[in-house]
Design a protein around this nucleic acid. Structure first.
Lengths: 139, 139
DNA sequence: TTGATTGCAAACGGTTTGCATGGGA
DNA sequence: TCCCATGCAAACCGTTTGCAATCAA
């Protein structure tokens, strides 16, 4: 699975007996182009610009649905849950001044296959979180 | 700052006008030897074995105090906040079957100084999160 | 038509806060 | 003594749930 897209979601929905509602289309459309790991509240306000009566239950319902089918990932950076529409392998940069979260394509970080973990755990994946100050906050 | 210790906390407390209470001593003593990033509830139950009337407010108060003075770190793995008494630079292994969190000494992972981040962010640190199945869950 | 989805409101669970009492230094 | 810390209970806030009404297929 790569990046969340409206087409992929509609295909999945019709294939699995789920229904596409206007609210869901707006939510997916928002997530599709979101770059900063939106919170549920970000999604709530975005969808309410188009459909002012949309409830938080619908937002969470849709987010959990997409999560369950593997098209959206949860991340816990900061104090709220955040949603990541990028399901490709990647890393993150986080600005500790403004909270910006930015994806780092995984080719930009050298491979780390050769660490010698203690204790015979089975390693399946790893991700790198880079912290610092983003270009805007440096000023 | 390295690893949380009772001596260091007592020194800091007397130096800064804070008070050491029996509850705080038990909490610090528990954190000192905790290896699995305990939750506030873990701390609550541990301290209540020795002082059965200890409130959650006291637990959170103490955890936030230690966090504020930089002797304890918060991490968000799973659905609750977790507290990490290890303030040295290190990485983590997380088992997605049982939730185990284990520290990885930073020498065990090769240096990553040379990534070329896009966008002129100022990089200050990075941490690696390794995911997989721990030795116990492999059985 | 029909069952999945919606909106509302109440419930839930982790964390914080206000306040009177208690106890270190 | 003085003021910080404690315990209790209520408040808070993000998320989940129950249910009747609604709507996509």
């Amino acid at each position: 699975m790569d990046r969340l897209s409206l087409r992929a979601v509609e295909e999945m929905a019709s294939g699995e007996g789920f229904k596409m509602t206007p609210q869901r289309r707006v939510i997916v459309n928002y997530l599709e182009k979101a770059t900063n790991h939106p919170t549920a509240d970000d999604v709530f306000y975005a969808v309410n610009k188009k459909f002012p009566m949309t409830s938080r239950a619908t937002v969470y319902n849709t987010l959990n649905w997409l999560k369950t089918v593997g098209m959206l990932r949860e991340r816990f950076e900061g104090e709220k849950m955040r949603y990541d529409p990028n399901c490709e392998r990647h890393h993150h940069f986080i600005c500790h001044a403004c909270g910006l979260v930015e994806d780092i394509n995984s080719e930009l970080i050298e491979e780390l296959d050769a660490f010698k973990l203690p204790g015979k755990h089975k390693v399946e994946s790893y991700e790198v979180t880079v912290r610092g100050v983003c270009r805007n906050c440096r000023k």
